[in-house]
């Protein structure tokens, strides 16, 4: 299998990752301890969410406004086997806040809004923007790493998937 086949084959991880983040938002109140110098962050799903199954001709559900992840319609979509494919997400760390749209395939952040920058114009502004962007990328990759460490482990099917399915079925997070 060449690299492009492997990339295509693993695309499903994007939607699973996003839906896992949604589960964690509810299970952990959106708090993630990323360890090391990244520390703790808070993640929340914002006012845009798109869900569908992987089938090409499947109907897509788009939610706009309010808090779609807590709507009955989005819960119903989960129970119909649909996963999050695109979502507006907010990450907060201390006084800094990043807002972006996470897409599943290719898995990427778009329309990234950085925390407010005090410097206006010139190279200093550019360096500040890059610093804040690279910090967000490190957070995003640390979250993806956390997900992959669970998803690719032997305990995924035995421990984690039953909890996720319980959450999908009842809307309630099982006490760990």
């Amino acid at each position: 299998m060449d690299l492009s086949d492997k990339i295509k084959r693993a695309e499903f991880l994007g939607a699973e990752f996003m839906t896992w983040l949604w589960y964690c938002e509810e299970a952990q109140g959106g708090i993630f301890d990323l360890g090391g110098d990244l520390g703790q962050i808070e993640l929340s799903f914002e006012d845009r969410l798109t869900m569908s199954t992987a089938a090409a001709d499947e109907q897509e559900d788009s939610f706009k406004g309010g808090r779609p992840t807590s709507s009955i319609e989005a819960r119903m979509a989960l129970r119909l086997g649909k996963l999050a494919r695109q979502a507006k997400i907010r990450i907060t760390q201390g006084e800094q806040e990043w807002i972006f749209t996470l897409r599943e395939a290719p898995l990427m952040m778009t329309a990234i809004k950085l925390p407010e920058i005090m410097t206006k114009g010139g190279q200093t502004q550019f360096f500040e923007r890059m610093f804040l962007l690279e910090h967000l990328e490190r957070i995003y990759k640390a979250l993806f790493q956390m997900f992959l460490e669970l998803r690719l482990s032997e305990e995924w099917r035995s421990d984690h998937l039953p909890m996720l399915r319980q959450w999908v079925a009842s809307g309630e997070v099982e006490e760990g």
Binding site: I7, A10, E11, L13, G14, F17, L107, F144, Q145, L152
Partner: peptide
């Protein structure tokens, strides 16, 4: 960067 290639990013240390 795709899900597959990010997983192989040495910074993730998988």
């Amino acid at each position: 960067e795709y899900a597959y290639t990010v997983a192989h990013d040495p910074s993730l240390g998988l």
